[in-house]
C-alpha cells in the first residue's frame, strides 16, 4: 500500500484480498478524505455507494472470492474531483449486457443494480475493453 498526500491531492494505491469486507479500511479512509477536502454529504454518499458496489463486484463477481487473486484499487481525492480505479483479476464482463434493472419485468429482481447505481451517482464511469477494470470519477457538485 502506498499513500501520498500533499495539500492539494490525497492518493492511495492498495491491493485488497478477495474477501468480503476487505475494502472497509480503504473505503473509510477515502470517505474521511472527502470530508477533509470539504465535500458535501450528498457527494460523500454517492462516492461511498459507487465505490462499495464496484469493489464488491470485483471481489465477488470478478475474482469470485478466490484467495489467490487481488483487487487493485487506486484512489485520488482533491477539492473538486475524486477518481477511483478498481481492477480485478477475473475474466471481465460486458457492462452493456447487464439487463436494465428498471425494466418492468426486472423491477423486483433481487440483484443487478450495482452498475446502474454507479452510473447514476458518479459523473463518469468507464470500463476497460476486457471489463475487469473500472474508473469512477466524481466532480464536486
Amino acid at each position: 500500500m502506498t499513500e501520498q498526500s500533499d495539500a492539494d491531492v490525497w492518493r492511495r494505491v492498495i491491493d485488497l484480498p478477495s474477501e468480503r469486507g476487505s475494502n472497509r479500511e480503504v473505503t473509510d479512509d477515502l470517505l474521511t478524505q472527502l470530508k477533509v477536502f470539504g465535500w458535501p454529504p450528498s457527494d460523500v454518499f454517492a462516492v461511498h455507494l459507487a465505490v462499495e458496489e464496484a469493489i464488491v463486484n470485483a471481489i465477488v463477481h470478478g475474482n469470485k472470492l478466490d484467495p489467490a487473486k487481488r483487487v487493485h484499487v487506486e484512489c485520488e481525492v482533491s477539492a473538486d474531483r475524486v477518481l477511483v480505479s478498481i481492477t480485478d483479476e477475473g475474466p471481465g464482463f460486458d457492462p452493456a449486457r447487464v439487463p436494465d434493472c428498471t425494466a418492468e419485468e426486472r423491477l423486483e429482481a433481487p440483484g443487478g443494480r450495482g452498475v446502474m447505481l454507479m452510473k447514476s451517482f458518479m459523473t463518469r464511469i468507464e470500463y476497460n475493453a476486457k471489463g475487469n477494470s473500472v474508473v469512477l470519477e466524481k466532480r464536486r457538485t
Partner: peptide, 11 residues
C-alpha cells in the same frame, strides 16, 4: 447508507 445487496433483501 445501504448497498444494493440490502435493496435485494427489501425487495
Amino acid at each position: 447508507f445501504l448497498s444494493s445487496a440490502a435493496l435485494g433483501k427489501l425487495i
